[in-house]
Structures are given as C-alpha cells and as structure tokens.
Amino acid sequence: MSSKKILGALAALAAAGLVAAPAASATPSAASEAFALSAKGLLNIDPLPYVNGKNGYDHKKVAEVPAKSVQVRALEAEAGKHNAKATVVNVSVDLGLDLLKELKLGGGQLLSAQVITSKCDKSGVSSSLVGAKLLGKPLDVAVPANTGIEVPGLAKVMLNEQVKNKNGTTTVNAISIKVSELQKITVASATCTPGKDGNTGGETGTSPTGKPSPTSKPSSATSKPSSSSSAATGDNGVAPKPVPAPAQLDVTG
C-alpha cells in the first residue's frame, strides 16, 4: 500500500510541475547559479529557489517548500556574474513513515539545521552548517572540502562538497546526501564561474579613495546620457556615481 501511495504522491507532484531538475554540475551554460534545496527521487523538489547570473544579478527568497516533508523558515539564493550564495534557515526534513519504509530507514528526522550556507566569490569557496543534524548525528560547523561522513542508514553523505565542473565552473554543496539510489538531496548549492574582476554582478570599480576607476567609464557610457560630472568617481574621497548593474528585482511598481 505504501508504494501505491508514494506513486500517487509522485504523480501528484509531477502534475504540479515538480519535475526533477538536472544537478548543478550538469548545467551546460557557464553561468553562476545557486539554490537552497533540491531533492530527486521519491521526494522530488526542483532546485528552490533557483537563480542564475546569466542575465544579470538574481536574488530570490521563499518561505515555503511544495513538499509536506520539508519545513523551513527561509530558503534564499542569489547569483551574479562571478558570485553565488545559498542559505537555508531553520530547516527540518521528515520523510514520513511511508518514505522511510520505502528507503529502508528507521524512524527519525532525516535533517534538521539552524542555518546552512554555501557561497563562492572572488575570495573563495565555502560552506557552513550551524546546529545541523543528520538522522540525529550532529554535524561540525565547518569542515574541509569534500568531507565524507558515515551516517548509518544513508548510502553517502558529503559535507562541503566542492566540484570542478566541465564547463569551468565550481560548485559547492553544503550537504550532499544520497539516501540510496532512490533518493538524493542537496542542501545549499552555489556555483561560480571563474573570474577576478570583482565579486558582484554589477560592481564596477567604485573608488572612493581618489583613484579613478578604469572600468567605470565604459560601463557607464551605456545608453544613458551623462548630465553631471560633479559626482564623478572618487574625486577627493567623494562617493562615486554608481554604474547600473544588470539585475532583476520586482519592486512595488
């Protein structure tokens, strides 16, 4: 009966448009991207919220997950040209008796955590786990890259998983869980394209210290006419004129 129920639930999820998405490393385009949570298998959650920096800075935050098994206070992801960040706040994943039975797991909460973060930018790649437990096993706040841990009942757990992708990007997953061949879960994933020209999607050489920025002129000479020279970048410690960053934000019209 449990299998039927699960199949039914899967069908309902599929009908709701919740189809498994490819893992970050399989993305063909070389854009920075991030998501806070994804699950593939009996429990399916598309990377959520999914952002990428392909068309400019993108930043999304959600407070709900379309799956009963997962409770969160917030899932947040942002990605720019060469930076990305994913944050999960107050998460708990309870697979429920049927799924636990299907996955041959004992009872208990699969995952709980206060804050899980992963990020990459010009200063490096990192992830952290605060108050995190996997099937009751407490996890360290910070661990070296690609730290595999043994959790009885789970096929594979990798913390601070860092992967160099074929397209040149680097992905960091705070937690990568393979419950079994039937279920994978990724928590807090950030992927960055390599680049050293700043850590923001729209940052262009702002220089309050008096040195003119070499990059501000070409970028600011877009279609916008320049009407003032008084706010020019960095004269005598004067705050610079900003350069618009390609980005998307739904403001209040």
């Binding site: 068309n55 279609s223 618009p244 960053a245 934000l249 403001v251």
Partner: peptide
C-alpha cells in the same frame, strides 16, 4: 542599488531604496 532591469520592462533603470511598502 542602481539596476538595469533584465526582466521588468516598465523602466529600463530602477533605483531601489532601503524602504519597503508597509501594505504590500
């Protein structure tokens, strides 16, 4: 912030403030 909008089309450039709508 100073942004060049990549999705919404009502304004090519948007200057978001620190402020938020108290009703939305």
């Amino acid at each position: 912030a100073s942004i060049e909008e990549t999705k919404n089309t009502y304004s090519k450039y948007v200057l978001p403030l620190s402020a938020h709508s108290d009703s939305h």
